[in-house]
Simulated scan of single mutants.
Amino acid sequence: MAHDHTQDHRPPTDLGPAFRWAVGLNTGYVIVEGAAGWITGSLALLADAEHNLTDVDGLLIAWGAAVLAKRAVTARHTWGLGRATILAALFNAIAILVGVGAVTWEAVQRLSDPVAVPGLTVMLVALVGIGVNTGSALLFMSSRKGDLNAKGAFLHMAADAAVSGAVVLAAVGIMVTGWDWLDPAVAIAVSLLIAVTAAGLFREALHMSLDGVPFEIDRAAIADWLERQDGVQGLHDLHIWPLSTMRTALAVHLVWQGADPDAFIDRVTDALAEAHGIANVTLQLERRPCDRAA
């Protein structure tokens, strides 16, 4: 006896407004920063403007994935297109790591041959960057814990805000001491911190893209809980996998002896949704044990 329950007790998060504001703010900042770099001849500002342009691309990709995740299922995509949010998070993690690598490489080169930078101009533009990137990160703060795609966007923006803050400190230091090497030194330090965070995002997104059990779910604990339910004498073929960054599915065969299978299934699926956020549940009830292992 097989039964599938699909229910979601959490309303889907509408990230459209957040992405719209983030893309608009960052696009405007890229234009301002690029123009300032062109007028002053500051390669640092031009390079950062190019980096922020990749951020806009990343936000657009994450936004597109969030839109795809809301599309209805089709005969060709029976689970819908929610997995696009996982791929977007993976792409964002890779983009962050590539950007960190490029900045670190350039900073190492400049340590041996520091380039004079207009400290005041860099500081003022970076201050604007702090405001833009911090504001953009805050747009995704409330959604980042339950949505890896939103987490990727949040980390991207938060990392850029940190970079802008470090640039301000470096600019102040350069104006006070005249030490041009502060600019690449701070860039390297910040890049290492960003790399650690991005590596965690990459690991989680890659794990989910390979149908791994979401990190926040304890498979052993769920198996133990299922085996303790009334009438359950054993289980096997327990599978838990992500459908998107916000939806998780579970399928399991239960050896069960009871009188009311519908009531049992309703109770178990409701509990899995409420306690673990697993809203897509398929239970296969069997009357006799199977030779397969759990």
Rank of each mutant, 00 (worst) to 15 (best):
L124K: 06
L53M: 14
T78A: 13
A62K: 03
Q109K: 12
A88T: 02
W105A: 10
L120A: 15
G58T: 06
V117N: 13
A107K: 08
W79L: 13
H51V: 10
A72F: 11
V73N: 15
A137H: 01
L87M: 03
T104D: 00
D57A: 14
W105E: 08
G99T: 06
I86A: 03
P114S: 05
T121R: 12
M123N: 06
V67W: 15
T121N: 12
G64H: 05
T54A: 07
W105T: 14
T54D: 00
V122P: 11
V132M: 04
P118L: 14
G82C: 04
I94G: 04
D113E: 10
R144W: 01
W105M: 13
G64L: 05
N133K: 11
R71A: 12
S142N: 06
V128Y: 06
H77V: 14
I130P: 02
L60C: 09
F140K: 06
G129T: 12
T104E: 01
I96C: 00
V100K: 01
L59T: 04
I96Y: 00
A107L: 04
L139C: 07
M123C: 11
A107C: 07
G129W: 08
L53Q: 11
N133P: 00
K70A: 14
D113N: 13
E106L: 10
N133T: 03
G64M: 00
L120D: 14
T104K: 09
M141S: 08
G58M: 01
V128S: 08
V132L: 04
P118N: 14
F91L: 01
K70Y: 09
L60S: 02
V100A: 04
V115F: 07
V117Q: 13
G119E: 11
A95P: 00
L90I: 06
S136E: 05
G129L: 10
L120P: 05
V125N: 09
L127Y: 02
T104Q: 05
R144H: 03
L90A: 15
H51G: 03
S143Y: 08
L81Q: 11
L138N: 04
A107G: 06
A116H: 13
P118W: 14
V73I: 12
H51T: 09
A84C: 05
N52F: 15
G129D: 09
M123F: 11
V103Y: 02
G131F: 04
V108S: 02
T121Y: 12
K145N: 11
L111N: 03
L138Y: 05
A93D: 00
W63H: 11
L138E: 04
G99Y: 03
G101E: 01
R110T: 09
G119V: 09
H51L: 07
V108K: 01
V103M: 12
A69V: 10
T54L: 08
R71G: 11
T104H: 10
S143T: 06
L53H: 07
I130M: 10
